[in-house]
Amino acid sequence: MTMRLTEPFYRRKIAACQARLAERDLAGVLVFKPANIYYLSGFFHYPTERTIALWVPTSGEPALFVPKLEEDHAAEGWLRQIEVYFEHLGPPHPLDWLAERLRGWGLGRAQLGYESSLAEGSLRRLQTALPDASWTPDGGKIIADLRLVKDAEELALLRAAAHYADAMVEAGVEAVCERGLLSELEINQIANQAVVQRMMAELDNVVFVSGMTGGLVCAGPRAAHPHGLPGLARPRPGDALILSFGCAVGGYHAESERTFFIGEPGPEHRRYYEAVQSAQATGTAALRAGATCSEVDWLCLHVLREAGYGAFIRHRMGHGLGLEGHEPPWIEDGDATVLQAGMVVSSEPG
């Protein structure tokens, strides 16, 4: 099956962005963040030091700015206006060149949007090159707000990614059950290879940027490390084993994470497991439209605190999922975002 978004989807997103730009009296937004370029144009690329940017005007067709190295790749997509420079530092410098393009389009005195993630030095360079233009991060906020709520096509990709992430967990369990106490790296490699082969057989026109799958496997005392990297350690009888895997379908990421025990868990392991399981169930049940992220996080982690494990909490309840493995909204104390139907988040307290 084909699991990749098409031109009508991206044109719809461009139109939604343009409507909000018009509401804020912006001439357009200059987009540098790779995930935002993916979202608005579908131009998936391998980010390097070379400048790649997307210009979305309030009206009219968007324009993609790429180095010569990406010209042929960019031409494979639906965007028709592709502006090409030669190499990373020029001359001219790509940002100076880009600013001259904007000036040539009559935007030298316009109000221009940018993303707050744009490096301060890059913003200063653009401001110097276009001294009569005004710049506002409102443009980036428009894109961030659009990305919060997924539509039907995006949800389909996320469900498919979750399906394959679950399959990775199953492959990891199967490897241990059939081959014995393999090393963390071996379990990780087996699960990744098994599901990549399956995805290659079942999917058409895949999106490959940083990889289709990935994972963390930790055993024994290292199972308490939320983001521990897999190594040569082998689980022993009585150990906890963490299988934490992620997959991307059509560029959209989902995770599947489970805790297992080698043999029968002891009483202490059972208490920890049951407390986290209860916290996760409480937090997941609280994920309802109208609740705030901070409220849901508090309800979830309060279960662990009430169980006497407050001193051992290492992280929030969860985070958003989409074109990035970690993206807003953040299910944590500091995020007052109001949850809406169509938002996709993880539930993984600990």
Rank of each mutant, 00 (worst) to 15 (best):
A110M: 01
Q111I: 13
Q111D: 12
L112R: 04
Y114W: 05
A119V: 08
E120C: 02
S122K: 13
L123E: 02
R124Q: 10
R125G: 03
T128V: 02
A129P: 04
L130D: 05
L130S: 04
P131A: 00
P131S: 02
D132W: 04
A133Y: 04
S134L: 07
W135K: 05
T136I: 07
P137E: 05
G139I: 01
G140C: 00
G140I: 01
I143Y: 08
I143A: 03
A144M: 05
L146V: 10
L146Y: 10
R147T: 11
D151V: 00
A152E: 06
A152S: 07
E153R: 10
E154Q: 10
E154W: 11
A156M: 14
A156V: 15
L157N: 09
A160G: 11
A161M: 08
A161I: 10
A161Y: 08
A161N: 05
A165M: 09
A165R: 07
G172C: 07
A175D: 05
C177V: 08
E178C: 02
E178F: 00
R179A: 06
G180L: 01
L182H: 04
S183P: 00
S183W: 02
E184I: 04
E184H: 03
L185W: 02
L185Q: 11
I187G: 05
N188R: 10
N188E: 13
A191W: 01
N192T: 08
Q193H: 12
A194R: 14
V195M: 05
V196H: 04
V196Q: 12
L203H: 06
L203K: 05
N205G: 06
N205R: 13
V206S: 09
V206L: 14
V206C: 11
V207I: 15
V207K: 01
F208Q: 13
G211E: 10
M212I: 15
T213D: 07
L216N: 02
C218M: 11
P221T: 01
A223P: 03
A224K: 00
H225L: 15
P230N: 03
G231L: 07
L232D: 14
L232M: 12
A233I: 12
P237E: 14
G238Y: 00
A240Y: 11
I242G: 12
I242W: 10
L243S: 09
A248T: 14
